[in-house]
C-alpha cells in the first residue's frame, strides 16, 4: 500500500487519517466499463439489441435493402404466393411484400421515438415537480394522472385523433400525451425516495432553489429508472402507433407502414396470409427486441 507509506512523511495531523482505498478518477470510468461489460455479457440484452439495431438501420437505409420499389404496382401478379422473385409474395396490388415490410419500419421508428421523447419530457417534469413540492400540488397532479390512467388508452387516442384529424404530428402528440401519466408516476416515486435523502436537506440549507434542486440534484439520480421507463414506453409506443394506423387513424395509403399493411391485408387473410403475416411478424420482432433490451437493462442495473 503506497498510500500508507506516503502518509508517514506527512505532518502529524495528516497521519491521523483513515486512509481510503482512494479511487483515482479512473474509478468512475472503471465503473462505467464494468456496466458496459455486464451488458455485453447479458444474452438477453445483446439479442434484443441486435434485432433492434437491425430495424433502426433498416428504417434509415431501407432503400439499400429492398429488392424492388415498394410502391411498384403489378396488378397482373396480385396476391402471388412467395416465390424466388417475390420472397414474401405480393399484396393485392401486386407490390412486393418484402420490400414493403423493409420500407415500413421507417414510419413506426420515426413516430414512436418522437412520441416517447415527448412523454419523457413532460412526464419527467411533472413527476419531478409533484415529487419535490408534494403537498396540495402533488395531490392534485396525482389525482389527475390517476383519472387519466383510468381511461382505456386506445379509446382516448381514437377519440383524440377523430377530433384533431389523423396526421403524423397528431399521432406523435396523442401517443406522447397518452404515456405522460405513466412516466410521471415512475419519476415521482423515485423522486420521493431521493427527496428524503440528506443531500437534499444539505442543498436547502445552502440556499438552493427548488428548480435547481430538482434539475441539478435529483434528476441525475433518477437516471437509471428513467432509462428503463423510457425503453418500456418506447415498446408501448411502437405498439400504439401500429394500432392507430391499423385502425386507419394514422398513416394513409400508399404508405408501407406495418399497421396499415396488416389492416389492408386483413381481407385477404384466407387467400394470401403472407400479406398480413409478414408485417405482423416484423412488428412482433421489433416489440420483442425492445422488451429484451428492457429486461437486460433491468437485470444489469439491479445487480
Amino acid at each position: 500500500m503506497t498510500a500508507g507509506r506516503k502518509q508517514t512523511q506527512a505532518p502529524m495531523e495528516a497521519t491521523v487519517d483513515e486512509q481510503p482505498p482512494v479511487a483515482e478518477p479512473s474509478a468512475r470510468r472503471r465503473a462505467r466499463r464494468d456496466l458496459v461489460r455486464a451488458l455485453l455479457r447479458s444474452k438477453t440484452f445483446m439479442v434484443g439489441c441486435a434485432i433492434l439495431l437491425w430495424w433502426v438501420l433498416d428504417s434509415v437505409a431501407w432503400s439499400l435493402f429492398v429488392p424492388t420499389d415498394p410502391q411498384a404496382l403489378d396488378p397482373t401478379n396480385a396476391l402471388a404466393a412467395p416465390s424466388a422473385q417475390h420472397w414474401l409474395g405480393t399484396d393485392n396490388l401486386g407490390r412486393d411484400v418484402l420490400s414493403r415490410v423493409l420500407a415500413g419500419a421507417t414510419t413506426v421508428l420515426g413516430i414512436a421515438p418522437a412520441a416517447t421523447l415527448l412523454a419523457l419530457l413532460l412526464g419527467t417534469t411533472i413527476g419531478l415537480a409533484a415529487g419535490y413540492y408534494r403537498g396540495w400540488f402533488d395531490e392534485l397532479i396525482t389525482r389527475l394522472l390517476d383519472a387519466f390512467l383510468a381511461f382505456p388508452p386506445i379509446v382516448v387516442a381514437v377519440l383524440a385523433l377523430a377530433v384533431v384529424g389523423a396526421s403524423n404530428v397528431a399521432v406523435i402528440l396523442v401517443t406522447g400525451l397518452l404515456f405522460v401519466p405513466n412516466v410521471a408516476r415512475t419519476v415521482r416515486s423515485v423522486v420521493l425516495q431521493e427527496r428524503s435523502r440528506d443531500y437534499i436537506a444539505a442543498a436547502r440549507l445552502r440556499g438552493e432553489r427548488g428548480p435547481y434542486i430538482m434539475v441539478a440534484e435529483i434528476l441525475p439520480n433518477v437516471g437509471g429508472p428513467l432509462m428503463v421507463e423510457a425503453t418500456v414506453r418506447f415498446g408501448y409506443a411502437v405498439f400504439t402507433v401500429a394500432t392507430l394506423s391499423f385502425l386507419g387513424l394514422g398513416l394513409q395509403q400508399p404508405s408501407p407502414d406495418w399497421g396499415l399493411a396488416i389492416s389492408l391485408g386483413r381481407s385477404y387473410l384466407q387467400v394470401a396470409p403472407w400479406v398480413v403475416l409478414a408485417p405482423a411478424l416484423a412488428l412482433a420482432t421489433l416489440v420483442v427486441s425492445i422488451n429484451l433490451v428492457v429486461d437486460g437493462l433491468r437485470q444489469v442495473i439491479e445487480e
Partner: peptide, 24 residues
Amino acid sequence: VRLEPRHLEVKPAALSGGLKQRVA
C-alpha cells in the same frame, strides 16, 4: 479537513466513510 487535492475529482462512492464525512 485534512483531505488532499487528489480527492478533488473523486465521487463520494470512491471514498471511505470517514473521508466522506470529512467532505460533508
